[in-house]
Design a protein around this nucleic acid. Structure first.
Lengths: 188, 188
DNA sequence: CATGCCATGTAGCACTTGCTACATAATCGC
DNA sequence: GCGATTATGTAGCAAGTGCTACATGGCATG
């Protein structure tokens, strides 16, 4: 029984643990996600984490998967009611969405995931791709109704906003802002 | 004598060590940059690294500073002879420059630095800002001669190419490519 | 009631981490 | 040449790492 829904007997299943573990990773990052701190955050022991998840790699993989799920839900929740009018509107929405306090933990974690992917860590790559694909879908749905190329446009805006996000992270928000002003988006 | 130029007596100064340390960090990343492996790579001991650099934080700070210097030199070296004709040209140059094998270690390290900056590590933020500023200068010099707004344009292209870079890193190079195709850059 | 499995606690192991104490060789100013 | 500073080796420490061995309670099924 590797993955079963009926959790009638156990109080501490993967399903119970994962939210707590995810919370800890979101708050403190992957760098300090070692067994004992994680266990403490989830109210259990390193012993039990290995018991439930096999080894640390699989633990992290499943936590990241779970977090990707949360992220996806967060995107769904913040779906704007009315469509954006222009691409500029979309960019503004994305950036202000990412500036929300609730999104900060995801942002900080995001770059750790990217760094892991850059070094070839499979679990990180998988999570990264999953999250980007989801964000891309979300962006496509946000595109203006009259956009001549919603698919391409969404990819364009994704590239642009992710670049801006990175610049903001390293304290170059101003550079990103000026860059966006010089893009075609602000041409009237 | 914290920082002296005359290194007549010592065979193993900071200056001798730094290139070797930087090489190790570029190859293996910050995550595995602990004292003993670093010392081994530089042909010395953890004991001497602390002796020369004070503590690990300062060690990393100085290594990153040194690497930022190398990066800057690498940018200088790859300065194109003739100016680019269009912004599209500039993007192509930047991306192909970053695709060179010699740049790969910088790229992988880059995301670790960004991740560190996102978590508030000062030394990482400093290195990141330094490298981005340098890249921005380089980009400004690459802008087409007849560009209506070279400064803003450079910032725009920086944002765009960094986004593309990230997408490439996590295996979404295709998304970035399609995004660039949908930008104004490819409009004739 | 017996048997066996699931869940968990307690200890511990071998290894790595940053850093320090202590001794000693080399070298420099005098 | 001598005393002081500089550079280096050897050992080690306390904490943290992933993971394992062993025992043991509880529960369900025979």
């Amino acid at each position: 029984m590797t993955t079963r829904e009926s959790a009638t007997k156990s109080q501490m299943s993967r399903e119970t643990l994962l939210p707590l573990l995810a919370g800890h990773v979101l708050q403190h990052g992957l760098a300090s996600a070692s067994l004992r701190p994680l266990a403490k955050a989830a109210g259990t022991s390193d012993r039990m984490l290995i018991y439930h998840f096999g080894n640390k790699d699989d633990l992290i993989r499943q936590i990241l998967e779970y977090i990707a799920g949360i992220y996806s839900a967060a995107l769904d929740a913040s779906m704007g009611d009315e469509r954006a009018k222009t691409r500029q509107d979309v960019v503004t929405r994305v950036l202000s969405h990412m500036r929300e306090p609730a999104m900060q933990p995801f942002l900080a974690l995001w770059w750790e995931i990217v760094a892991g992917a850059a070094r070839g860590t499979d679990s990180h790559s998988e999570a990264a791709q999953q999250m980007m694909e989801r964000l891309l879908e979300w962006l496509e749905e946000q595109m203006p109704e009259d956009d001549p190329d919603p698919k391409g446009g969404a990819r364009y805006l994704l590239t642009l906003t992710e670049g801006a996000q990175m610049l903001g992270t390293i304290g170059h928000a101003r550079t990103a802002r000026e860059g966006l002003l010089a893009s075609d988006l602000t041409r009237d």
